[in-house]
Design a protein around this nucleic acid. Sequence first.
DNA 1: CAGGATCCCTCTAGATACTG
DNA 2: CAGTATCTAGAGGGATCCTG
Lengths: 137, 137
Amino acid sequence: MDSKVFNLKTKLEVYKAMSGGANFADCPVRDVIQGINGKWSSLLVMALAEKPYRFGALRRLVPDISQRMLTQTLQELQRDGYVHREVFPTKPPSVEYSLTDLGRSMFVPLYQLVQWAELNHDAVREARAAFDASSQA
Amino acid sequence: MDSKVFNLKTKLEVYKAMSGGANFADCPVRDVIQGINGKWSSLLVMALAEKPYRFGALRRLVPDISQRMLTQTLQELQRDGYVHREVFPTKPPSVEYSLTDLGRSMFVPLYQLVQWAELNHDAVREARAAFDASSQA
DNA sequence: CAGGATCCCTCTAGATACTG
DNA sequence: CAGTATCTAGAGGGATCCTG
C-alpha cells in the first residue's frame, strides 16, 4: 500500500473533520454522510447518474425496493439537493427524477467508492469466510 | 459540472455493477457497500486511518457511541477484513485495533467522499432549508 | 481493560390497501 | 401513474450488570 494518500492532511484533522471537533453529534460532515448512507440512497443516485427516470421506471429498475422506500428515499435525496423532481401535467400525471448539479458532483466520489467495491469484493468475501471459519473453531 | 466523469464507463454499466444485473439482492457491490454503510463504520475507519487505537481510546475519541455499538461495529469491520484486532497479553489485557491493507485501500475512496462532504455541506444545508421552507407553504 | 449478556425501546423498512 | 396511510416485524441502538 502506498501511504502517501494519508498525508493529504494531518490525519487527526481528517478525523476531526468528521467528528465535528467539540460538538460531535452536530458535525456537518457526519450529517451529510448520513444522508448518503441509507440502504437505497447511493443505489438510486447511481441509477439517476445514467439518465433521468420516472417513478415507475425506477421501481422496475430496482425490483427489490418497496414503493414506500422509493418514495421516501427520493424525498430525502430531493431534500438534500441531490435530486430534482419535475411533475409533468399529463393525464395521468408523470413525474421525472434527475440528478442536480450537486448530485452529479456527489456522484464523483461515490462512484470511486463503488468502483473500489467492484474491484475488491472478492477480498471482502474471502475475509468474511476466513473470519467465520476461525471464529467457529 | 464537468460531465466527462460520467463517461468512465457506460452509465448503465455503472448501475448494473451496483444492481448485480440479474440477481439484485445478491449483488456483491451492494453487499460491500452495505458493510461500509453503517452509522459508525466509516467514522471508525476514518479514526483508525490516523493510527491504531485501543478499545477505550476509541470510546473516548467517539464519545457518542455506545460500548455495544463500538464492539459490534469493530467486529463487522474485522470480519470484512478492514480492521486488524491484536490482543496484547498484559494485565489487564489491552487490545489494539488497526487498519489492514484492505482497510487502508478502502480508506482512499472513502476519504474522497468525506472531503466532498466537507466542501459541500453548506450547499446541502441550504438545500434542506429551501426544501423545508417551500414544503410548508 | 475489553468486552459478553441481557433487557428494552425506538425507528426503520416492508407489505398491504387506498387516493388524486 | 405516482403517490399517501396504516400496520407490523425486525433491526438498530441505549443502559445496565457481569466476567476473564
